[in-house]
Simulated scan of single mutants.
Amino acid sequence: MTTQALPTRTADRFPLDRGYVFSTEGVGREIDADTAVDWFKRHHDKDDEFIWLHFHDLPTLLEGWPLQHVQLPDAFADTLREASRSTRITHVNQNLIAVLNDVEYDFERKERLNVATLWVNVGARCLMSVRSLPLRSVS
């Protein structure tokens, strides 16, 4: 799988960290926030492209974007809002919802342990991920 880099990203409207559109040949191209919105407005279920959007700001994500542009199961928004961060994968309608955790460890115990969580929703043509903190095990 190869990707073409986008020179600049214009994620000023919402906290898009990375976005990619993949063709049927597996070639990905990086997209910005405006292109992602346009992609959802133009594409229908019979198109062959696949989009992956990764966000870094959970509260802003829940305030409306991309939930107003992307048809996601209500269970994904509920999963993002709930306090439980237990690692799991659930099947909801035609989607998989995963919650993955990573522990930032300090063997000398100089600092408090931090748990970083990654939430993922995978549908037929869209993968959406959001994180609370950077994960060490998923780069």
Results as ranks from 00 to 15, higher is better:
84 S>K: 08
85 R>Q: 09
65 W>S: 02
69 H>S: 12
36 A>V: 05
17 D>L: 14
113 L>I: 15
137 S>G: 06
125 R>E: 07
80 L>I: 05
130 V>D: 01
45 D>I: 07
50 F>K: 10
14 F>L: 10
25 E>L: 15
41 K>H: 07
84 S>E: 08
36 A>S: 08
16 L>D: 02
136 R>F: 08
8 T>E: 06
74 D>W: 00
25 E>D: 14
28 G>I: 13
12 D>M: 10
69 H>W: 06
95 N>V: 12
47 D>P: 12
49 E>K: 01
75 A>G: 10
68 Q>F: 07
64 G>S: 09
11 A>N: 13
69 H>I: 11
43 H>D: 03
116 A>E: 04
34 D>E: 10
30 E>P: 11
38 D>T: 10
74 D>H: 05
99 V>D: 00
121 N>K: 04
31 I>P: 03
136 R>N: 12
58 L>M: 08
122 V>G: 00
15 P>L: 05
102 D>T: 02
77 A>W: 00
64 G>V: 09
88 R>H: 12
100 L>F: 05
72 L>A: 11
42 R>T: 15
135 L>R: 01
73 P>E: 05
27 V>N: 09
112 R>A: 15
97 I>M: 02
45 D>C: 07
23 S>A: 13
81 R>Y: 03
108 E>A: 15
102 D>G: 05
109 R>I: 13
32 D>A: 11
2 T>H: 09
120 V>G: 00
39 W>G: 04
91 H>Q: 12
44 H>L: 08
55 F>P: 02
24 T>E: 14
74 D>R: 08
128 M>V: 14
11 A>S: 09
135 L>G: 03
77 A>L: 05
25 E>V: 14
20 Y>A: 09
118 L>F: 06
